[in-house]
Design a protein around this nucleic acid. Structure first.
Length: 918
DNA sequence: TGACTGGAAAAAATA
DNA sequence: TGTATTTTTTCCAGT
């Protein structure tokens, strides 16, 4: 039996201490610290490096050995242990899904929730998703249980949280549609089946109060409240389980006002206090218990049996300790010692089978993929039984075949990070969407399709595909924060139809996420104009109260359009590519008032400062201030200074600022700081990353090219740095023969006549070299630079299978810079090249670059990756055969970094003491 | 009409 | 606990 799990613990403080102190203490500490942080906005975007500790649970690195996807999923640096233990149960070599890496440690939707402290447990499930899906409750549970035992991913826990009997606030009377969150998880997975009364899907109509149940609708459109949000706001606009629905009226479903019984007022029970970045986050829902006890789990939905089954599986004391000591994603789950994200993640993964819920079983795909339909019908049986009507999407007038690739039950889950290019294929967003798009609420009419800056619409094209068979381009709304790209919990893509819409599309649901499927036709050169996608905003209250949901909606208004395409290969494998757009601000207010930094002319500069940096973006004012800040791992400000802005040159879209000298002119290693544009109280842009360089420190850089800093600093100029994301060099272990990875490949085709890497291009992967791993202490100011370095470090490519690599990668990724929202960590993509039995993946990151196709966020990087050189390692590819533009980093850097990190930590600590009460 | 839009008031959440 | 602000949602009205 082979079992692998990875436990990642992120904490801004030492794991050991945290653990020792106990979760509460640790959390309290964090809270107090976080509370000191400025605005929520700031918190939300602030970057808090985490200190990672290693918990030597593992042995070797089985995970890597068998799953290359491992790398991608581990955004977290800290602890990664992979054990090979009994996994065989589910681990069938021939099981297609088995090889996929399932980021259990990640938020249900993918990434780890908040920065610090968090424990992410990643279970590498060898268990095929489809199998999981298909498996029925009991069986399913058992299997998963086994799986979860070692993984600590609390796989079923998520589902378990849901207590069907406990009416979710989101499932208020008004929100009785299938979409109601209450129904969400169950639909996809799980086992309330054990008790009929607990099973929403089993008795959808049992109780009107239970939203889940609203499924009656499922039977027919007429009876179905499920209409597209735009069309019938009242009805629960969301088509998916988990998607809240509500009746129109004044704030009917507000947790505080309308969820009868749950809360009587906004400040009462059920009210949350939170802040995006590790600040307080309390969920005082009646359903939640402050006690770290399965039974006290807020997710009431968990039955004792289920819970026990799950919890009993966590036998590793170390892991348990870690879990108890830290919360996931920095979100304090006071009620449980179990990382919420983890639980939910599992959930999502399992649910991530492309369940297609068509109204009335209508097969939108003309050519009907029997396999798919059958599959869906079988797998989605439960779902449809109560939510079948949910996606009441009118059949599109255009008939187009749905590629079979999509039908594959083993497609990567939506929170997987996929590369934008792999081998000859490259998925590119040729025309980026505008940075602002006011999303519409269910209670509103559609606000139209997302538009491009030019006035048209975003355009996506797949390069390198020479077959005659059409493919399906998937589109969903993803996050744009500094964590891994994942489906956005508060936004859903909304299908736009009408005379003005030229692109055919239809909706499908996958893991609580609505996906718009758009045909990619050879006759159109595999190019699609995305004029059929709008953005629906779900009420925060509905989503936040959804069981298992740990993200908060407040100020979480940035999204990205995420495109995916799955290409079947002759050898039976499927290549999955993903491209994420630049961030899109969806709130009305933010779009009008908040400054948005889209790019900066300089990414790093010597500590002496003095250089003028051009910042471009939106909503800049003559009075805008540019503030450079350095924060400690715990979020405390170590340094803050206002940079000089050239008032004369300030325009609404650009401003010139003089890089201020760093507080310490004698730094020996790069120091990562941030800066933001401030238009006034609470009107700040997201943090942008900036790195101060030591005078004579060897700088790891990419190959010189035109984008290099003319200043001779030797540093690349990031024309689009704002979207810079952690760069990962794909160094993936090669699990097995099938596995892949290897070097970077230049993404062929594309760009013959297209400008350099589009923003949407996938970000490169972070290197997983041990070096990186060691050095990337969470809070290290050098963090950013490390990433870059790593990314560029050829060595990475040379250390593919190192067990540590995965962890390193993980760490790096998790370290998203604050900028990342913009650049959000973009999807650190991993391309999936997987055979049915053993998928291979390769990571890459997607830097989103607002600048547009022509711009490349990371100069040099883009040239490599931007070109979409897949950082993924392809099974066939070899580093030797692939042109690598990355310079090799001296191994000595390891120690150097280590030393630097230590120094930094020392400095930070001393600073912290000084600033703690500042 | 119905889909979009832009504004803005009302309500809720925070500070 | 009450007040001030900020943010989220819901409404309205015009194109």
């Amino acid at each position: 039996m082979q079992e692998a799990f990875c436990l990642r613990v992120h904490s801004s403080f030492s794991f050991g201490s945290a653990a020792a102190a106990g979760s509460d203490r640790g959390l309290d500490f964090l809270h107090s610290v976080s509370n000191d942080m400025k605005s929520a906005e700031e918190d939300a975007y602030s970057y808090t490096p985490n200190v990672s500790l290693s918990l030597p649970l593992g042995m070797g690195n089985p995970c890597l050995a068998t799953q290359y996807h491992t790398l991608q999923t581990s955004p977290v640096i800290s602890i990664t242990s992979c054990q090979q233990t009994a996994y065989s149960l589910q681990n069938d070599n021939h099981n297609p899904a088995s090889t996929y890496y399932i980021p259990h440690g990640l938020r249900p939707n993918g990434a780890p929730a908040l920065e610090s402290p968090r424990i992410e447990i990643t279970a590498y499930s060898h268990y095929p998703e489809d199998e999981v899906e298909e498996s029925n409750s009991e069986d399913h549970i058992i299997k998963r249980g086994v799986n979860s035992i070692v993984t600590l991913t609390l796989p079923n826990a998520a589902e378990g949280y849901r207590d069907p009997t406990c009416l979710s606030p989101a499932s208020s009377i008004s929100s009785r549609s299938c979409n109601s969150e209450a129904s969400s998880y169950e639909s996809s997975f799980y086992n309330y089946d054990n008790s009929p009364q607990n099973s929403p899907w089993q008795s959808p109509c049992v109780s009107p109060r239970n939203s889940l149940l609203s499924c009656p609708l499922a039977t027919g459109p007429a009876a179905s409240p499920h209409h597209t949000p735009s069309t019938s706001p009242q009805i629960g606009a969301v088509a998916e389980e988990g998607w809240p629905t509500q009746t129109r009226g004044s704030r009917p479903n507000s947790p505080s006002s309308t969820h009868g019984g749950i809360t009587s007022n906004g400040s009462g029970i059920g009210k949350r206090k939170y802040s995006l970045n590790g600040n307080t986050y309390h969920q005082t829902s009646p359903n939640q218990s402050p006690v770290v006890s399965p039974h006290g789990s807020p997710r009431v939905s968990v039955t004792d049996e289920n819970w026990i089954a799950n919890t009993n599986q966590y036998t590793n004391s170390a892991i348990v300790a870690a879990i108890n000591a830290l919360t996931t994603d920095g979100v304090v789950d006071m009620g449980e010692g179990i990382p919420i994200k983890t639980r939910k993640t599992m959930l999502d993964h399992q649910a991530s089978m492309g369940l297609k819920v068509e109204p009335n079983g209508e097969d939108l795909s003309p050519d009907g993929d029997l396999c798919h339909d059958e599959y869906v019908s079988r797998l989605a049986l439960k779902k449809e039984s109560y939510c079948g009507g949910f996606l009441d999407v009118p059949q599109h007038p255009y008939s187009w075949s749905k590629p079979k690739s999509y039908l594959s039950p083993s497609l990567p889950s939506l929170d997987w990070q996929l590369p934008s290019c792999s081998g000859p294929y490259s998925l590119q967003i040729e025309v980026q969407p505008k940075s602002h798009h006011r999303a519409h609420y269910e209670t509103e009419g559609s606000r139209g399709a997302v538009k491009a800056l030019s006035g048209g619409h975003p355009v996506v094209q797949l390069y390198g595909y020479m077959e005659s068979e059409p493919l399906t381009l998937q589109l969903f709304i993803g996050t744009a924060d500094d964590r891994l790209l994942r489906p956005h919990a508060f936004y859903q893509v909304h299908r736009i139809t009408g005379k003005t819409v030229s692109t055919a599309s239809h909706e499908v649901i996958q893991s609580n996420t609505k996906i718009l499927e758009i045909p990619l036709l050879p006759e159109n050169n595999m190019r699609a104009i995305i004029d059929c996608a709008g953005i629906l905003k779900l009420r925060n209250s509905d989503i936040e109260l959804r069981k298992g949901e740990t993200d908060i909606g407040r100020k979480n208004t940035r999204v990205r359009l995420v495109f995916r395409v799955h290409i079947n290969q002759p050898n039976g494998r499927t290549v999955s590519l993903q491209a994420a757009s630049n961030p899109i601000e969806c709130s009305q207010r933010s779009a009008q008032e908040l400054p948005l930094v889209e790019k900066q002319s300089v990414d790093s500069y010597p500590a002496s400062g003095g250089k003028m940096m051009l910042v471009s973006g939106l909503n800049f004012l003559p009075d805008s201030k540019v503030v450079f800040v350095e924060k400690a791992q715990d979020g405390h400000h170590l340094w803050e200074t206002e940079a000089k802005v050239d008032k004369e040159s300030v325009k609404s879209s650009t401003l010139v600022v003089e890089i201020p000298p760093y507080r310490n002119q004698r730094i020996s290693s790069p120091v990562q700081v941030n800066f933001y544009i401030c238009n006034g109280k609470r009107k700040r842009s997201q943090y942008q990353r900036f790195t101060y360089l030591p005078p004579n420190v060897p700088i790891i850089k990419t190959e010189p090219n035109d984008e290099y800093d003319p200043m001779g600093s030797g540093l690349p100029v990031h024309s689009q740095s704002f979207y810079s994301q952690p760069r990962l060099t794909p160094v993936l272990p090669v699990p097995d023969s099938e596995a892949c990875l290897v070097g970077t490949y230049p993404c062929p085709s594309r760009h013959t006549n297209i400008t350099p890497s589009p923003p949407s291009s996938s970000p490169t992967l972070h290197d997983l070299t041990p070096m990186a791993y060691n050095k990337c202490l969470p809070n290290s100011p050098t963090h950013g630079s490390l990433m870059s370095s790593i990314h560029e470090n050829p060595n990475n490519l040379n250390h593919p299978a190192s067990p540590d690599h995965s962890s390193s990668l993980t760490m790096l990724q998790s370290q998203g810079s604050p900028n990342h929202h913009l650049n959000s960590p973009g999807p650190h993509s991993y391309s999936h090249i997987y055979p049915s039995s053993s998928p291979s993946s390769s990571p890459t990151s997607h830097p989103s670059t607002p600048g547009g196709p022509a711009e490349s966020p990371f100069g040099p990087i883009s040239s490599q990756n931007g070109d979409n050189s897949p950082t993924l390692l392809h099974e066939d590819s070899s580093s030797s055969s692939i042109p690598v533009t990355i310079k090799q980093e001296p191994r000595e850097l390891d120690q150097m970094y280590l030393d630097d990190v230590n120094e930094i930590i020392r400095n930070d600590l001393s600073s912290i003491s000084v600033h703690t009460h500042a």
